[in-house]
Amino acid sequence: MGLVTNHLREIRQAKGITQVQMAADLNITRQTIIAVEKGKYNPSLELALKLIAYLNVDIHALFELED
């Protein structure tokens, strides 16, 4: 099974968005953002699509599947 990594922190910081702002906009907890950024939690497909739409990036720019 491949390992999913993400570049959420880099993209979020590049766009100047704070975790609190992102949590409020996406209606999720800050702990979830921290867990996703640290790679401790893989978001559901629904949240992943929300993140892509919110950050306006390609899915491959945000998530990577390592073999």
Binding site: A24, I28, T32, Y41
Partner: peptide, 14 residues
């Protein structure tokens, strides 16, 4: 402390 941020989401259910 947390303001209007939600305290539960999909990860909480997980």
């Amino acid at each position: 402390k947390n303001g209007t941020l939600p305290s539960i989401d999909e990860r909480s259910v997980h």
